[in-house]
């Protein structure tokens, strides 16, 4: 997908602020991957993430008049998306009986024997080392789920989605110092989690 030029994006935002759905849909086209990716990484379930992402875009369209130019539109959108994901997560925590086995995934421990072979042969044989197996992604996803929401949001936005510190601060409505602290605490927890699952990591990703 081509990246929108900044002035082109500003025009689309201005048109959206006047109720032009067509223009807003072009913005959605541009940002749906990062929005869905963020929500998915925060919640860990694709169906729920799709619903929350859709709601987040509707909420963003309704609220787009409150967006003031000059700041990152991506961070503004992700603020809505991550907030909705957090709200959803908290709601699920309050009513754990209602559906959310899929989110908490507490069922019987999986059989990782096949996984290990996939990991050991996967990334190294792959020219793109970045390709992680589905199973490894699942381990990371579980690790993310263990993080408190604020730390999870910071880790997802900075480490996974690649926002800048400033954008993360904007998306989380906080300052750089808090971002730094949440990020470091989230990383520390993730590291502990992954160390506990050391044997499942590919050799070149194993923590010492």
């Amino acid at each position: 997908m081509d990246k929108l030029a900044r002035d082109e994006e500003e025009k689309l935002i201005a048109r959206s602020q006047h109720g032009d759905v067509e223009a807003f849909n072009q913005l959605i086209q541009q940002y749906q991957q990062i929005m869905y990716g963020t929500v998915f990484r925060m919640l860990g379930d694709s169906d729920t993430a799709a619903d929350v992402t859709q709601d987040a875009f509707i909420a963003a369209f309704k609220a787009i008049r409150s967006y003031r130019g000059g700041s990152s539109f991506r961070a503004w959108l992700l603020r809505i998306g991550s907030n909705q994901a957090c709200d959803h997560w908290r709601r699920v925590q309050r009513h754990p009986t209602s559906s959310l086995d899929m989110l908490t995934n507490e069922e019987e421990p999986r059989n990782f024997s096949a996984l290990e072979t996939l990991i050991l042969t996967g990334p190294e044989g792959n020219p793109e080392e970045a390709m992680l197996t589905m199973e490894l992604q699942e381990i990371i996803q579980r690790g993310l789920r263990e993080l408190p929401l604020e730390q999870r949001t910071a880790v997802v936005l900075y480490d996974i989605q690649g926002l800048s510190y400033e954008e993360v601060a904007q998306a989380m409505e906080t300052n750089l110092g808090t971002v730094r602290s949440r990020l470091s605490r989230g990383r520390a927890r993730m590291r502990t989690y992954l160390q506990q699952h050391q044997e499942l990591l590919p050799r070149n990703y194993r923590l010492t």
Binding site: N25, Q32, G37, D47, T53, L207, T208
Partner: peptide, 30 residues
């Protein structure tokens, strides 16, 4: 080094496949 490894792992997570387009219906505006 551990921290860097872990962050590298997170950075290499591929983006999830989009299940559908999230474009809004045209009649939502009014």
């Amino acid at each position: 080094a551990e921290l860097r490894q872990m962050v590298r792992l997170l950075q290499t997570l591929p983006p999830p496949t989009l299940p559908r387009s999230f474009a809004l219906p045209a009649n939502i505006s009014a």
